[in-house]
């Protein structure tokens, strides 16, 4: 299985599911099973509640997280108490989640646990830093909760695995289109603009980058509240940096006002893009350009051809169609026991 070896190059990875029951947890267990734990320390946690024995929404069965000897894990007090693993309690965090404080512990032999880590991306990042710095973790694996794309942000983890499947759509064509859109966002290239370093320090506002690289405020505080943006405002502009979210309205405005002038839109990372596939594709087709300041490496896409409602798609066909569309290897790890 090639992506496990690839994974060793990074110190953090998040597993993001496009829908519930797309096989995130299987994917996590798959990784844990194949990582060379004899030469590295792996820490695993999740954002918010995850890893319930029973799925809280659909009531279908969910696999547990299998821990191996020596692994670090972060989970809430409540789930630490109900763990089925012999573990050494290393630390208790100060922040409180709905399930209590986050416990950091080391598994002393194999076992099972429900993961429910820090509840915000900022506190999750702090937990990961602590695991790496104070507990010598070489790799942090983060299991994502339902539709929490924000944790795939490169601010949190440097690489990611996308899990998709029949739960997202029972129609292979729709499933492929929807997944390809997200893959497209993740793979938006890093900007080549010279002022990138300066832009990273801009915490708010919308900025215009001129032909000669000078950065000036665009005169609107946020893309959510502006009256108008006419062609004169952006006449000398080579690129626009949006520190917050990129919305449909702003994307369309830029699309309209830029005319045949090529303007590069820069966002912090792909999780800041909140536009519909239709608008996004129109923008690209008209020659628009979107780039990011930071990008996380998409290591692989995993599919689960089975949905909780009983839908079962043709695994090989699904993998093949998706591969063709996104140009990346796609794995059905439940069906195929790939070699590490």
């Amino acid at each position: 299985m090639p992506f496990v070896r690839e994974l060793l190059k990074y110190d953090s990875i998040s597993i993001v599911g496009l829908e519930k029951n797309t096989g995130k947890t299987e994917c996590l267990n798959y990784l844990i099973k194949r990582l060379p734990l004899d030469i590295m320390t792996v820490a695993v946690s999740s954002i918010g509640v995850d890893g319930e024995r029973r799925d809280q929404v659909t009531r279908s069965s969910k696999p547990e997280i299998l821990l191996r000897d020596g692994m670090l894990f972060g989970t809430s007090e409540q789930h630490y108490r109900s763990r089925r693993v012999t573990s050494e309690l290393l630390d208790i965090g100060d922040e409180r989640t709905s399930l209590g404080r986050v416990i950091t512990a080391r598994a002393l032999c194999g076992g099972k646990v429900l993961l429910s880590g820090p509840s915000s991306t900022a506190s999750l990042r702090r937990w990961m830093d602590d695991a790496i710095k104070n507990h010598n973790a070489d790799l942090c694996i983060i299991d994502g909760a339902l539709s929490r794309m924000s944790l795939a942000s490169p601010v949190v983890s440097k690489s990611m695995i996308l899990a998709t499947g029949a739960a997202l759509s029972a129609n292979i064509k729709t499933l492929v289109t929807k997944t390809a859109f997200v893959v497209g966002l993740v793979n938006i290239p890093v900007t080549k603009i010279a002022a990138k370093k300066i832009l990273e320090t801009k915490d708010n506002g919308v900025w215009s980058i001129g032909e000669n690289g000078d950065i000036t405020p665009l005169g609107i505080s946020s893309v959510l509240s502006y009256d108008k943006l006419d062609s004169s405002t952006i006449s000398g502009t080579k690129a626009i940096f949006i520190s917050g979210a990129l919305t449909d309205r702003f994307l369309n405005t830029v699309c309209r006002e830029s005319g045949d002038k090529e303007i590069e839109l820069i966002v912090r990372d792909f999780t800041k893009i909140f536009v519909t596939p239709l608008n996004y594709n129109t923008f690209l087709k008209r020659g628009g350009k979107i780039s990011v300041l930071k990008k996380s490496k998409l290591l692989a896409v995993c599919v689960n051809p089975t949905a909780p409602d009983g839908t079962r798609l043709d695994s090989d066909k699904l993998c093949h169609e998706l591969e063709k569309e996104i140009g990346l290897p796609v794995y059905d790890i439940i069906k195929n026991e790939y070699e590490a």
Partner: peptide
């Protein structure tokens, strides 16, 4: 500062833990 129910608290526990460690699969 870390803590767990150490093997040295109970001889029987120590034996069981050894057994668990030697087994390749998780044994409920």
């Amino acid at each position: 500062s870390s803590f767990y129910i150490y093997d040295s608290y109970d001889d029987e526990l120590a034996v069981l833990r050894k057994k668990m460690k030697s087994g390749s699969k998780y044994q409920d």
